[in-house]
Amino acid sequence: MKERKIPMRKDLVTGEMVPKQDLIRIVKTPDGTVKLDETNRANGRGAYLKVDVEIAKKAKQRRTFDKAFSTHLDDLFYDELIAYVDHQQGRRELFGNGK
């Protein structure tokens, strides 16, 4: 049986290529809002972040998504992102890689 190709995406903070299922997608919608894309299907321009709290903290420190989406994001967005990444990282430690 033929092996399936694993979709790879680049982590915006580290520049590392990672399987898509190990990343969180952040999207800038056509109306200009930036939000977490929990479904990985929202319309708009997407950027990916590895499920790691330290990397999310680096993203906040460097204002990575401000630069990627050419906009200004509040610290509240980054705090929400860090909390979401922490939650997802905990889930993966408990239940494995499944969502």
Rank of each mutant, 00 (worst) to 15 (best):
Val34Leu: 00
Ile6Ala: 01
Pro19Ser: 09
Lys60Ile: 08
Asp74Tyr: 06
Gly44Pro: 05
Asp31Gly: 11
His72Ser: 15
Gly98His: 04
Pro7Gly: 09
Gly32Thr: 09
Val53Met: 01
Val27Lys: 03
Ile6Gly: 01
Thr14Phe: 06
Lys35Trp: 00
Arg63Asp: 08
Ala47Lys: 01
Tyr78Lys: 01
Lys60Trp: 02
Asp11Gln: 09
Thr33Ala: 15
Lys20Cys: 13
Lys60Glu: 06
Gln21Ser: 11
Ile26Glu: 05
Tyr78His: 05
Phe65Asp: 03
Glu38Ala: 15
Gly15Lys: 03
Glu16Gln: 14
Ile24Gly: 04
Ile26Gly: 07
Val53Arg: 06
Gly15Phe: 07
Ile82Gly: 03
Lys57Cys: 06
Leu36Ser: 04
Asp74Phe: 10
Lys67Arg: 12
Lys60Asp: 02
Ser70Met: 07
Glu54Pro: 01
Asp86Arg: 10
Ala47Val: 05
Phe69Val: 14
Arg41Thr: 11
Glu38Arg: 11
Lys50Gln: 14
Val27Asn: 03
Gln61Glu: 15
Thr39Asp: 10
Val51Phe: 02
Tyr78Pro: 02
Ile24Leu: 15
Ala42Gln: 02
Lys10Val: 15
Thr33Val: 14
Arg45Gln: 09
Val18Gln: 02
Arg62Gly: 00
Ile82Leu: 09
Gly96Val: 06
Thr64His: 03
Thr33Cys: 04
Arg41Asp: 12
Val53Thr: 12
Asp74Ala: 12
Gly32Tyr: 02
Arg4Ala: 15
Arg25Phe: 08
Gln61Thr: 11
His87Val: 06
Gln61Cys: 06
Gln61Tyr: 06
Ala56Lys: 00
Asn43Glu: 12
Pro19Asn: 09
Leu73Asp: 01
Ala83Phe: 07
Leu76Cys: 04
Arg4Gly: 14
Gln88Pro: 05
Val85Arg: 04
Leu76Met: 05
Ala47Ile: 04
Arg63Gln: 14
Val13Ala: 10
Arg9Tyr: 10
Asn43Gly: 03
Val34Thr: 11
Val51Cys: 13
Pro30Ile: 14
Arg25Val: 08
Lys20Ile: 13
Ala56Glu: 03
Lys60Ser: 10
Tyr48Glu: 13
Val13Glu: 02
Lys60Asn: 06
Gln89Tyr: 07
Thr14His: 00
Lys50Asn: 11
